[in-house]
Every structure is written in C-alpha cells, then in structure tokens.
Write a protein that binds this DNA or RNA. Sequence first.
DNA 1: GAATCATATAAGTGATGACTTATATGATTG
DNA 2: CAATCATATAAGTCATCACTTATATGATTC
Lengths: 109, 109
Amino acid sequence: MHAFDVLGDPVRRRILELLAEGEHASGEIVAVIQAEFGISQPAVSQHLKVLRESGFARVRSEGPRRLYEMDAAPFKDVDEWVGRFRGFWSHKLDALATEIARGKKKRKG
Amino acid sequence: MHAFDVLGDPVRRRILELLAEGEHASGEIVAVIQAEFGISQPAVSQHLKVLRESGFARVRSEGPRRLYEMDAAPFKDVDEWVGRFRGFWSHKLDALATEIARGKKKRKG
DNA sequence: GAATCATATAAGTGATGACTTATATGATTG
DNA sequence: CAATCATATAAGTCATCACTTATATGATTC
C-alpha cells in the first residue's frame, strides 16, 4: 500500500503522532484512540496492522503486551513526493512579499 | 477536508503531479488520467472539484475551456505534519551507519 | 489446568466515496 | 438560433474499507 493511502486515514495519522512521542503498548494506543475517535479495540488493532504491514510501525511482545514503535522509513517517500512542490509555495511566499512591497510603494506614491 | 484525506487518492495525486508541471486544461488532464487510470471524464471532473474545494487547485475559464493551476498552500500543512518525523529517519540512518561500522569491526576482529 | 489478561484475527455489516450514464450549463461558430 | 464544443453537475450504483461483535491466540498467575 502506498504511503499516502495509509496516511489518508485520520486514525492512523493520530496513531503515528502518538508513536512519534515514543514507544506505546497496544492497549495505551487503544485507550487514546477510543477516547478521541470513539471506536472499538479491534478497529484500532486493524489500523495497527495496516501500519505494521506498510512499514510505518514495528511491534515486539512483552508477555501478553505488544509494544509498538514507529519506523519512519516510509516518511522518506512521503517527503520526497511533497518535495516536488516545495518550490511552489516558497515561490508563492516570495510573490506575496513582492505584492506587499508594491502595495506599500503605491500607498506612498 | 484535511489535506491528507485529499492526497489519499492516487488519481488526485497524479493530477497534482501534472499541475506541478504547469497549468493544464481540464480536457488535457482528463486525457492523461483516462489513459493511465481508465476512468471517465465526469469521474476526473469530480476529482478536480475536490482539489478546487480543498484549496489544492484554482481554475479560470477561457471560452468553454477551463484551465487549472496548482495552489501549493495546502502542501505547507502537509510538510509541517511530515516535519515532525524528520528527526526520526535521520536518526535511523545514523543508527544504520553505526551498525554497519560495528559489523565491519566484528568481521575484522 | 482454569482463570485472567492483552490483543490479534475472523466474520459480518453498511456507509462512503469513487465510479458510471445522463444531461445541464456556458461558450463559440456558422 | 441551431449545432457543436468543453466540461461541470445530477443521480444512481456498488466495491471497498472502516467499522462492529465474537472469539481465538498467546502469556501469566494461582
């Protein structure tokens, strides 16, 4: 699955934000997501599966607990794709600065 | 609609790639997408509507033709969100380099 | 070994969004 | 003004995916 397909879901984005803070047990993630999105434990588990299988997350067992951590590798692909558009918004900001400068000149002139 | 929700669709991502090359008429976009994805003109038009309404694209009329150009502003949000993960993949690459160095030492020793 | 905990997986459901065909709308031409 | 072009919108369809409940699986405790 393409990285953007994975990130196209708000629950999965939220999970990744949690994992960015550090390793989390499955149950901890479930608690947060249930509180914020109001969905069931198995629903969350399915999202975790998508993240594992797409490479965004890794899991290790500790007794009956499963600890998830983020694997940031797929973000490189995301960043590269977004990178092609960087010149555009920088350009737009430059154009905005120019426009503001023109506006100031006209008001003075 | 959230920017990632928009980018979660491969057709829309492709359209944005086209627009990154420069302004395109609706019909040109339709021709490319039909060739690559095999979907109908109205289907493409609906995707263009999503891009307009989410701020990723702007349109102007020229006779019966509609010319689309990209508005890169929403990419800033995308980039910022991805930005929080940048430290991670840099860190992972460092760890990989360290691991490779260790591997070389063990083989030598 | 039964009970409990933690959570993944199985199986089913149904809403949504990506699709289709039909046609409306806007512009131009002859 | 009818015909044609360009394409957006309307209305309907249905596959997919995000959800649910049920339960299987793995680990630990007593």
